[in-house]
Design a protein around this nucleic acid. Structure first.
Lengths: 258, 258
DNA sequence: GAATATTGTCCACTATAAAGGACAAAATGG
DNA sequence: CCATTTTGTCCTTTATAGTGGACAATATTC
């Protein structure tokens, strides 16, 4: 891999970009923006000439990967992108099993159950079953969130050393939405505790009203490749939180290799 | 659009192809093959130089759109493709509502309920809820099927004239899997009947053991943009088929504009 | 185990696509 | 209403990415 290429292939600015790189920039920008976007705005977002983006988006629209949405020139993901995604989810054994487990967990508990993983050096929700309770907490799939904001993030890093962890996470990601900064030492300690306990709970971290419960799905090497996660109101009883956490751990263990 | 470009942007062979076109060819080939594939085989499939495919697949793997799967050099769709697809499904109002309806239909009837649409001049299953019955019939999402093989296909063409229909469907698609050929006249008559009845039923068409029931979801212009569909064993009672069809029509009407 | 096929990487060549600007038309806003 | 911005398309230029071939290293077949 190119030495100047950083994680997940986001290449630094160059005079002249490859068409495929531009296309990937477009798709990732749309995922980040998480809404139909005008071609002109996309060009600004990724710092590319408008003429280039028009030609590429038109080609992607032809292929159905993007779709023109609304009466003006906004574009967003198209049906073909959906088919690609389903092909992935259907073929991936872990995903297939996780979907069933999520269904069961959400059904039995009425809480929001999620499958979470890393994407580069960020945390993303990969799949979700929104709870049926009154306080229906929803999260957008695929939106990148700083790792220190989440319970799952702590489990997903628990195979790393302290210095690896600090190298891995961008400085600014330790600042929570409310402005508070997570101390690196306590973060590393959190991760060690999560590892030894085999689960993680956070209260009021990414926002003041939610409690996140997470358990790791590990591969045969013991590395957490994903997590199962419940999102519940922070004022839920500690018995309920305990019970939900136990369910998570049990299900995540089933999904782990061996 | 380029005059020599045919439907859905599958360009004819040229000496030197665009990188984005190559990337799209790769993704569509994987969707068609519906299984992890070696880079060398992909090159054969789409008639491209191996060196080109290695460079493009590696770039797509970097971006997470593809993933290396298995211990040998096979590639298939990656997690990023899944996220793109979910972004589409979550943002598309029709899709969102259809998912709920599919859940309900499959739950209430224990039959396999599907959302179907056109992709170019083929029929594809866009989403599915596999039935819980003994005869669990499953279909692969995204795999292209000749339109004349399906009940849904007849509804999806019911805004076209006879000559438009025959221009639209490739000659060879009128041949069923069992070798029989669907007569064009009876096919056009099927479509007219489907249109007037507002639903379509086929018995033993794409295979000898299944009955397909379909109802159209129409946009404000009255064009069928998608169909809801049940797949049931062909020997189900005609009362059950009737009841299922009524449910479909009712649900599809709800999902139609106005 | 020799013969054949496949895999992944590298290189030089040149067709071509990304760039950057220009343009009219349409939308926006003060 | 005029002024400004945005939109979509078109054109020329030139850096470069797709090609096709070669290569060693494995796999595979007989």
């Amino acid at each position: 891999m190119d030495a100047i290429t950083n994680k997940r292939g986001v290449k630094p600015a160059r005079e002249r970009q490859n068409g495929i790189d531009r296309a990937i920039e477009i798709l990732d920008a749309l995922l980040r923006l998480h809404a139909p976007t005008k071609v002109g705005d996309l060009a600004k977002q990724i710092g590319a000439p408008r003429s280039t983006l028009y030609s590429i988006t038109n080609r992607l629209i032809e292929a159905g990967i993007l779709e023109a949405v609304g009466d003006e020139g906004s574009v967003y993901f198209g049906q073909t992108a959906h088919l690609y995604g389903r092909a992935y989810a259907d073929a991936n054994p872990l995903h297939r099993r996780c979907r069933e487990v999520l269904d069961r967990l959400a059904m039995q508990t009425s809480a929001t159950a999620q499958l979470c993983a890393l994407r580069g050096n960020k945390y993303v929700v990969v799949d979700t079953r929104d709870g049926s309770g009154v306080f229906r907490i929803t999260t957008d799939i695929g939106v990148e969130v700083p790792i220190p904001w989440t319970a799952s993030g702590r489990l997903l890093l628990d195979h790393m050393t302290a210095s690896e962890i600090l190298d891995f996470i961008p400085e600014e990601d330790f600042q929570l939405p409310d402005g508070c900064v997570v101390e690196t030492e306590s973060f590393v300690a959190d991760i060690a505790r999560a590892r030894s306990e085999g689960s993680c709970m956070t209260n009021g971290l990414s926002d003041r009203f939610t409690c996140c419960l997470a358990a790791p799905i590990r591969d045969r090497r013991g590395i957490a490749v994903a997590t199962l996660c419940f999102i519940v109101p922070i004022d839920s009883s500690s018995e309920r939180k305990r019970e939900l956490l136990d369910r998570l751990v049990e299900s995540a263990l089933e999904l782990s290799d061996q």
